[in-house]
Amino acid sequence: MNSLLSFEKKAYHIVVMDLETVDYGKIMDEIVNASSKGFRKFTIHVISKTPSPLYLEKLRSLIQNNIAYTITIRHHSYSEEEIKGLLRELKNIPHKVLGK
């Protein structure tokens, strides 16, 4: 993905499908799992009907609980085309998709 920041290219990516239905604890669990494999940078891609930046309210605790890792958070619109494009671009980058 050309639009990623350099350090995001070395990050573990978590795609959160439909943030409204995903418990933030699951994202935290995934971060902990990936960190046990040596990752220290994470990019969270949020697909949410709630517009940017209002969706961040659901991730506030996650951000506030983190002191150890570099985390970037990106918002993507709720369209099939954009989701497919995102997943295609993450094909060769370590990632996990959460949610339906």
Partner: peptide, 10 residues
């Protein structure tokens, strides 16, 4: 990114 938290390793 909407939010960037720069961790200790960076």
């Amino acid at each position: 990114p909407d939010y960037i938290y720069v961790g200790p390793q960076d």
